[in-house]
C-alpha cells in the first residue's frame, strides 16, 4: 500500500517528484533568508540592546515601532531614501536607455563602445567609491580643480561637508555604478525587437521619435518593468557606497534607511529598534515592487 502511495511514476504523483527535488533548495532558502527574517521580526517587538540567540525572549512591546514613527530621524531617512531612489533610478534609466540605443546601432567601434558602457558594472563597488572620493576630494580633488579652472566657482567646494553637495556626490556615484545594468538589460530587449516593426512603421511614414515611442518603448516595457524593480531595490538597500563616501552625513543628508539600520544595530547597539527599521524597509520594498510590477510593466500589445 505504502509502496503504491510513494510511486512517483504514477501520473497523479508525478508533481511530487518536482516538490521533492525543490525541497533542498527551499530548505536552504528558509534557513538563510526566512529564519533570520523571523528572528528580525521577533526582535523588532522586543526592547533589546545587544541580542543574544541563547538569551530568553524579552516581553512583547510596540515601543520600537512607536519610537520609529515618532522619530524625525526616521522620516528624514525615508525622505532621503525616496529622493535617492527617484533621482538615481530616473538618471540610470535615462543614461542606460540612451547608451543602449546608441550601442544598438551599427557603427565602427561598436564592440568597444559596448565594453565602455558596461565597464562601471564590472568595477567593484568599493573601488568605484574610492575613485569618486578622490574625484570629489574637497582639498585636492579633480572636480574642485576643474570647477576653479573653468571659473564655475572661485573657492573650493566642500563636497562632503555640505549637505546638498554630499547628496549629489552619492547620487552621481550610484548613477555611474547603476546605469550599465539598465543599459545591458535594455540592449538585450532592443535586440529582440523584430526589424519588420520598424520597416513597417517607416513605410507608414513614422519618424524616428514616433518609432521610438510607439514601437521601442511598448515592446521594452516588460524588460523595463523588471529592470526598474531591480534598480529601485538596489538603491533602497545599497549600503557600501554611502557608508564609504559619507557615512550618512553631513547632518544626515545622506542617511538612508539602510544606513540608519546599520547605525542603530552596530553603532548604537539597539538591535530591537534596528530590526523595526529593517522590517519597515522590507515592507516599503515589497510595496514598491508590487506597484512597479503592476500593469505598467506589461507589454502594450
Amino acid at each position: 500500500m505504502s509502496v503504491r502511495f510513494l510511486d512517483l511514476a504514477r501520473p497523479s504523483r508525478q508533481h511530487w517528484l518536482g516538490y521533492l527535488l525543490l525541497l533542498p533548495a527551499v530548505a536552504l532558502v528558509a534557513l538563510i533568508i526566512v529564519y533570520p527574517l523571523f528572528v528580525s521580526l521577533d526582535l523588532s517587538f522586543q526592547k533589546i540592546g545587544m541580542a543574544t540567540l541563547s538569551a530568553p525572549r524579552k516581553p512583547f512591546t510596540l515601543e520600537n515601532y512607536h519610537k520609529l514613527f515618532t522619530s524625525p530621524d526616521f522620516w528624514n531617512s525615508c525622505w532621503v531614501t525616496i529622493k535617492l531612489v527617484l533621482v538615481v533610478s530616473a538618471a540610470c534609466f535615462a543614461v542606460g536607455l540612451g547608451t543602449a540605443l546608441l550601442v544598438n546601432n551599427r557603427f565602427k567601434g561598436r564592440t568597444l563602445a559596448r565594453l565602455f558602457v558596461a565597464l562601471p558594472w564590472a568595477v567593484p563597488e568599493v573601488i568605484a567609491v574610492v575613485i569618486f572620493a578622490w574625484i570629489f576630494d574637497s582639498s585636492f580633488g579633480l572636480m574642485n580643480w576643474l570647477f576653479i579652472k573653468l571659473g564655475i566657482t572661485s573657492q573650493m567646494v566642500n563636497w562632503f561637508s555640505e549637505p546638498t553637495a554630499a547628496f549629489w556626490v552619492v547620487a552621481i556615484t550610484m548613477i555611474w555604478k547603476g546605469y550599465p545594468f539598465v543599459s545591458i538589460m535594455t540592449l538585450a530587449g532592443l535586440q529582440s525587437i523584430p526589424e519588420d516593426f520598424y520597416n513597417a512603421a517607416k513605410v507608414d511614414g513614422a519618424n524616428a521619435f514616433q518609432r521610438f515611442w510607439y514601437i521601442t518603448i511598448p515592446v521594452l516595457m516588460p524588460v523595463l518593468g523588471v529592470t526598474s524593480v531591480l534598480v529601485v531595490l538596489w538603491v533602497f538597500r545599497d549600503f557600501s557606497i554611502i557608508k564609504v563616501l559619507t557615512d550618512g552625513g553631513p547632518l544626515k543628508a545622506t542617511q538612508t534607511l539602510s544606513i540608519m539600520t546599520y547605525d542603530q544595530a552596530f553603532g548604537f547597539f539597539n538591535m530591537g529598534y534596528a530590526s523595526a527599521i529593517g522590517i519597515v524597509t522590507l515592507v516599503l520594498c515589497v510595496v514598491a515592487s508590487l506597484l512597479m510590477l503592476g500593469r505598467k510593466s506589461q507589454a502594450m500589445y
Binding site: 561637508s161 549637505p163 547605525d263 548604537f268
Partner: peptide
Amino acid sequence: IQFNEFSKMIQEEAQRMII
C-alpha cells in the same frame, strides 16, 4: 555606554555649527 550615540550627536552639532 551611550558614547557612540553621544559622539555622533556632538559631531553633528559641531558640523551644524560650521555649516
